[in-house]
Design a protein around this nucleic acid. Structure first.
Length: 466
RNA sequence: GGCGACGUGGCCAAGUGGCAAGGCAAGGGUCUGCAAAACCCUCAUCAUGGGUUCAAAUCCCAUCGUCGCCUCCA
């Protein structure tokens, strides 16, 4: 009946209740725009796209905020190396990312704030933190005092005492505690910088998100999402910053997607083992990536390799088989059979909802859809008419769209070639009636080589692009 | 070293106390001139070893292995 969500904060599934009835405030960490986005980013965006679509399907209005980190060390480094203006570089990647989202059929967020355009909010928040005594300025830098927060570490399950062993943590003399993190960094020569009470500088990464959250969604939000690589320190620090000012629980539900894994390792820019979204889309439709994402629980790592890709393509073709038209000589289902079809339909719909209500269990939900595919195909092969098939196909399409599949015809219909293909098929039919199979098979094979698949049935021949 | 997650058939992957979803692949069959598609059928006792329980893939302990985080990262 109610939606359950796995909350990283409590490590449990909890019943979902929004702060404001009927409205979901959801913030998801977006990319740092210094390089082309890869399919790991796409996976994360897709996970939250599916969550958002489902919440909307269940009647919520979703205020969905995704930030762009456009002020950052990496952007500056990259821009300097390429002799570019950092803002131009960021802008270029923002445009490319937005384009990718569209091609992947990911709904645009309600708002896409950018760090560079939230400076007043950011500086205001830092001032408040200093006033509250939880941050300190030193030589133009401002740090958050982690020891000031009793429950620092509550999201990631870490304790300051056990973390300060020095393992991989650089000790910075300026900081009171090695884990104190930068809210404001003083500007170096040639870097973009903003005026502030602490001198010229720019914000740290963590404060950007806290400030944008506060600005666009308010003191408390329902869902905060992102990759599980952000749990520590990024999200931990967001909690520390925001709660130090509001003294309220920041996000009710912390949701984290698993990492996309390529050759046994997390896909990441720093490891260099990546497939960009553009590279992927040049070979496969976005729906294939979506099905891969859906096939796996969003919290689990997603295996990516050629074998899985091929399996997914085949599986996707099977899903689409449900939408094929009725047989030309369909005699119609009996009343019992038609009733059975409709009963199964109702059942599938409710099973789908049960699956998705359970922490967005897309693997179980897609299994329901595969069951529905079988039921529809069964009905078709038993002679269901177009009008008998239609409600089932409509329901199937609706649920596919809830998962974000784009079902508009993707076939590269080439109206110039179509008449000639039809002609060849007519010719082949003629050859077949004369039992000149060697020739008719040659036409079929040669067309296949051109990407045209021919399927014969009792009622004639149909074709489609591969 | 610390924290966290995980190990289910050839592959991908649900299921967290009551006879192991789904997809891909594979094999057999129906249909077909053949093929394709579709339909029907077949295909696992859940890393290993202990323990708790009437009952465990599911809980506990140990062992082995994998991954993530602890530094920028979706």
């Amino acid at each position: 009946m109610t939606i359950k969500i796995y909350n990283t904060l409590t490590r449990k599934k909890e019943a979902f209740e929004t702060i404001e009835p009927g409205t979901v405030r959801m913030y998801v960490c977006g990319p740092t725009v210094y390089a082309p986005a890869h399919i790991g980013h796409a996976m994360s965006a897709m996970v939250f796209d599916i969550i958002r679509r489902y919440l909307e399907f269940r009647g919520y209005e979703v205020r969905h905020v995704v930030n762009y980190t456009d002020v950052d060390d990496k952007i500056i480094d990259r821009a300097n190396k390429e002799g570019q203006d950092p803002f131009d570089l960021a802008e270029k990647h923002i445009q490319a990312y937005a384009q990718s989202l569209e091609e992947l059929n990911i709904e645009p967020a309600t708002v896409f704030p950018r760090a560079s355009q939230e400076m007043d909010q950011i500086k205001g928040m830092i001032s408040q933190l200093i006033d509250a005594g939880v941050a300190y300025a030193i030589n133009g830098d401002v740090y958050y005092r982690v020891e000031s927060k009793e429950d620092y570490g509550k999201l990631s399950g870490r304790k300051l005492e056990t973390m300060n062993a020095g393992y991989r943590i650089q000790v910075d003399e300026k900081k009171e505690h090695p884990l104190d993190f930068a809210l404001w960094k003083s500007a170096k020569e040639g870097e973009p910088a903003w005026e502030s009470p602490w001198g010229l500088g720019r914000p740290g990464w963590h404060i950007e998100c806290s400030a944008m959250n506060l600005h666009h969604l308010g003191e408390q939000i329902d869902i905060h999402g992102g990759g599980n690589d952000l749990i520590f320190p990024h999200h931990e620090n967001e909690i520390a910053q925001t709660e130090a000012i509001t003294h309220k629980t920041f996000a009710r539900y912390w949701m984290h997607n698993g990492m996309l894994v390529l050759k046994g390792e997390k896909m990441s820019k720093s490891l260099g083992n990546l497939v960009t979204i553009d590279e992927f889309l040049s070979k496969y439709p976005g729906n294939i990536l979506r099905l891969m994402v859906i096939n796996t629980g969003y919290r689990s790592p997603l295996t990516f390799n050629d074998e899985v890709l091929e399996q997914t393509e085949n599986a996707y073709a099977r899903l689409l088989s449900a939408l094929k038209p009725a047989l030309a000589n369909a005699a119609g289902l009996s009343q019992e059979a038609d009733q059975y079809l409709n009963d199964q339909l109702t059942k599938a719909r409710s099973n789908f909802i049960d699956a998705m209500d359970d922490d967005f269990n897309t693997s179980a939900a897609i299994a329901v859809l595969f069951d529905l595919v079988r039921i529809i195909n069964q009905a078709r092969s038993e002679g269901a008419t177009e009008s008998q098939l239609e409600p089932a196909q409509a329901a199937f399409s609706e649920l596919m769209k809830v998962l974000g599949f784009k079902l508009e015809i993707e076939t590269q219909t080439n109206s110039n070639a179509d008449p000639f293909i039809e002609l060849l098929i007519a010719l082949r039919t003629e050859l077949r009636t004369q039992k000149l199979f060697a020739l008719s098979d040659k036409i079929r094979n040669d067309l296949k080589a051109l990407g045209v698949i021919i399927e014969d049935s009792k009622d004639g021949t149909s074709w489609h692009w591969e």
